[in-house]
Each structure stands twice: as C-alpha cells, then as structure tokens.
Design a protein around this nucleic acid. Structure first.
Lengths: 147, 147
DNA sequence: AAGGATTGGTCTATAATAGAGACCGCTGAA
DNA sequence: TTCAGCGGTCTCTATTATAGACCAATCCTT
C-alpha cells in the first residue's frame, strides 16, 4: 500500500521548486520501474556481493562456496545462489557424476557487474578507517548525551 | 559463532591449490577486518542507497525524505538516517526554531560514495532489461519442471 | 564389513528484523 | 476550535534469517 497518495502530491517540493516525484522520475526511479530497488535490493543483501566476489576467481562448487563464505548457512547459500541464478548473474551446472557435482560460475552478466562492484569495494576499503572513526565518535557523543 | 574451525582449515582448497582462507586474506577480507561486510552491509540495505541518492540533489528535511522515499516507514527512515549519520556519510543538523527543523545533508564522505554508487546504479539501469528477461526465463524453466 | 566423511541440498524451530500505524507535544493556519 | 504538519518514538505483528538436524548415495579407512 503506497503511502504517497495523489492528495499529497501537490504539497511536495516545499524547499525545492522541483517536486520529489519529478526528481525521482528524472533520475529514472519511476517506482514501477526502478532499477535501484529492483537490482540493488538483490545484490545488496548480506551475501550476494560476497558470493559474486568469491566467484570472480573462478567456478566453485556448493561446498567450496560454503567454506569460502564462512558464516553463511546452507539455507541462505542455496537461496542466494538461486536468486543470483534467476537474475542471470551466475550459471549453475550439474555434472551427472555420482554423487552429482554442482558447479557455480559467473555468467557474462555476472562478470560485468564485478567492475562497479569492485569500485564500491575499493571505496569501502579506502575509507574503512574513516567510517570506523566516525562510528567511534558518534558512539562517544551518544554516550555523553546519556550521561 | 564461526562455522569455520581450525580443524577444518587443513581440508580447504580441494579444487584450487590456494586455500579459501588465503584467497580471502589476499582480497583483504580478513573476517575480523572485512570492509565488504562492515561497510556494504550498511549501505547495501534496503533504504540507505536510496537515501544517499536522494540527498545527492541537496539537503532534505525529515518529512521531505519521507515523501521522497515513498514506501519507507518513519521507523526505518529514522533508523537508516541514524546509521548513515553514525558512519559519517551524512550530517544531521537541528535548527532551534519552533518547532525545530532537522536537516540532513551529505558529508564529504557521503559525497564521495556517490561515484561508486552511481556506477553501480548505472550498471543496474543499463542491464535492467537483461536481468528481467533472465528472471522470466528462469521462472518459465522452473514452471516447466513442476509440470 | 562397519564407521565416518563428503556430496548438494531440504526442513523445522527459533531468533532477529522490518513494517504498520497509533501516539506525542508543539505550532501555525482556517 | 479544529485540523495539518513537524520530527520523531513506541508497540504489535508479520516477515525473514539463522542454527542445526536430516537425507540418500558414495567413497575411504579401519
């Protein structure tokens, strides 16, 4: 149920002349067709980006991935792999050996996302210290307010 | 509780000569100090990236943001803003008017993440159709298996 | 030949998290 | 007076994640 009704639209944009909705539309986030929410919500979850980065080094089998991403449960690994496969970012290939071996590897689409994803990871690494210091300072300020 | 004990470490790396742990270390994901998990888990949640992108256009007040990000609840908006503020990505400024006005704006750090984040959004926009088609095909294949 | 480990998962029970929406004191406008 | 908006907080419920048992088949060790 959308919280933003027609009746409110006229009221939007009190600080900027351009309305919020118009700004979203201009940026391509038309709610019904928003790549940010539709794509980033998937790969932005707790495990997907980790899996993609792990597969960057080459194909891996299920149990290998389970060991490579240490804290993930089998259930979440299965689920994340299914989502990534559904989005076409990786390919699941079953070898009919006994017992069957299952290999996961990046699709061309999945290879393609490594660029932007790597840039974000690079940024995170580069500013990790600054972020952690900001957290420490915030927590100190918060503790002072309670005291 | 980590699922990866010392006892298992010797068993890792059956397909590749390099062990999984060594690979993680080489990539900088030292578990205790992993920027991917420590940073991307925060900004990779459902709302934070949306908020950052909204603030890219300029400072916004609480209620403006609430209208700009249509489906978010006040609770989650407060929480997301607090997290982003704690990480030093945005600045919360209270104007002592009556009633007080609260303005949120990107910090220099927050401005900096717009680059990598924008690259990822750009990628998402560019490949949105391919992803949606992959999903359709996956769902069709799945339905066929059930039939 | 028995016991254990490994394969790729599924299933259930429980813990953590997200969301809906009521509520708050205060102010300005109708 | 009554209503809307401000910037939230609070509670209750619904959704989601996690831990961990379990599975059948196959191998290796003893």
């Amino acid at each position: 149920m959308p919280r933003l009704q027609k009746g409110n639209l006229a009221l939007i944009g009190d600080a900027t002349p351009e309305s919020a909705i118009a700004r979203w539309e201009r940026l391509g986030f038309s709610l019904a067709n928003c790549p940010v929410r539709d794509v980033l919500d998937q790969i932005g979850d707790k495990w997907s980006s980790l899996i993609l980065l792990t597969l960057a080094d080459g194909p891996q089998r299920f149990s290998q991935l389970h060991r490579c991403v240490p804290d993930i449960s089998k259930r979440m690994l299965t689920q994340s792999l299914r989502n990534l496969e559904r989005d076409g970012l990786l390919i699941r290939q079953v070898f009919p050996t006994k017992p069957p071996a299952v290999e996961y590897r990046l699709s061309p689409l999945g290879q393609g996302i490594l660029g932007p994803l790597g840039a974000l990871v690079g940024w995170a690494e580069q500013h990790h210290d600054a972020i952690r210091q900001a957290r420490r300072e915030f927590d100190i300020r918060e503790a002072e307010l309670l005291a």
